[in-house]
């Protein structure tokens, strides 16, 4: 029972990071029906940028909290720029191309970003400075770190902020309209290209923060860290119902929970299988995803 509680807490922490990354996938998918394969690499860039920014600031004698905030800001700006550039260069020209063409460029961009990261940062595993205390705090049967608590709270805060943005602001309304029907949205005077760029910027910003979280939580970052994380997060987005914000959040949290609670019953080597088995099961019984709406088959 104690183990279960502990694993639930661990699952929530990991799951909230999955959810942040999954939001990036689902936002882009909702608008462009494109699997942005390069999103995992955005997370990686976020992790590495923040790592080097934080190290640099600490070396200059900045206090840890300031270093962290500036590092996060640097990561977000870097990722937003990269995300918007990717869309502009690699996806926009292919908006009316056969469906698989942008998927292949997305894969190309993903490999390209990894290689560029090797050029810029190098191949090593870099250790992330401990900016928030990782000393264990014991609550009865559960042990957490301050770092984990901050991750969890920040994630939930960001998700709430995103939901608010999408549902209560002009930009959010324009995003929803564009996702619903690009042509009509365009006719209504919405600048589609701008909205899509904003979507990529926001998604990439969230990815950047997720990158910082992963790097700080595991204490390291490297050029390949985005790959498996991206894959899991995309799985989570699909499991929840791709294109649906709630779906991405629910899917991310469930995936994190399933993986960590599953560890009680199954050997750690099989952890990754667990995620995919659950995905397959969910989609068999709910082909539209957990939260996705069923789209009626039209004649």
């Amino acid at each position: 029972m104690d183990v279960l509680l502990q694993q639930i807490v661990n699952g929530l922490v990991v799951g909230s990071v999955y959810a942040l990354v999954a939001l990036g996938y689902t936002m882009v998918y909702g608008i462009l029906q494109l699997i942005n394969f390069a999103h995992g690499e955005i997370v990686m860039i976020g992790g590495l940028t923040s790592l080097f920014a934080a190290k640099g600031l600490l070396a200059m004698g900045a206090p840890p909290l300031l270093a962290l905030l500036v590092a996060i800001l640097a990561a977000m700006i870097a990722c937003a720029i990269v995300g918007v550039l990717i869309e502009r260069i690699a996806y926009r020209p292919l908006r009316n191309a056969p469906r698989l063409a942008p998927l292949i460029t997305a894969i190309g961009v993903s490999i390209l970003l990894q290689q560029l990261a090797i050029l810029v940062f190098g191949r090593n595993y870099f250790s992330f400075p401990e900016l928030i205390s990782k000393a264990p705090i014991v609550f009865g049967p559960i042990t957490v770190t301050l770092n984990e608590i901050v991750i969890l709270l920040t994630s939930f805060g960001l998700m709430a902020a995103l939901l608010w943005l999408v549902h209560n602001t002009k930009v959010g309304t324009a995003m929803r309209a564009t996702a619903e029907n690009q042509k009509v949205a365009g006719l209504m005077g919405i600048d589609i290209n701008k909205i899509i760029a904003i979507t990529f910027a926001i998604g990439s910003g969230l990815g950047a923060i997720a990158g910082v979280m992963v790097a700080s939580n595991y204490g390291q970052a490297h050029y390949y860290m985005g790959f498996m994380l991206g894959l899991k997060a995309f799985t989570a987005a699909v499991m929840g119902g791709i294109g649906n914000l709630w779906g991405a959040m629910v899917g991310g949290l469930i995936l994190g929970l399933v993986e960590n609670v599953g560890l009680i019953f199954v050997r750690g080597d099989y952890k990754d299988i667990f995620a995919f088995v659950v995905l397959v099961l969910v989609l068999i019984f709910r082909p539209q995803g957990l939260v996705g709406e069923r789209v009626a088959e039209r004649a």
Binding site: Y29, Q33, I35, R99, L231, F234, T235, V238, I242, R267, D269, Y270, D272, I273, A275, F276, V277, L279, V280, L283, I284, P287, G289
Partner: peptide
Amino acid sequence: PVLKLRGDYLAIVTLGFGEIVRILMNN
């Protein structure tokens, strides 16, 4: 099991299947 799925859902499930096979071989 994936007959009913379309497009990108199919893609991600097949991707998962590929990973499952690889992980099984590993373990």
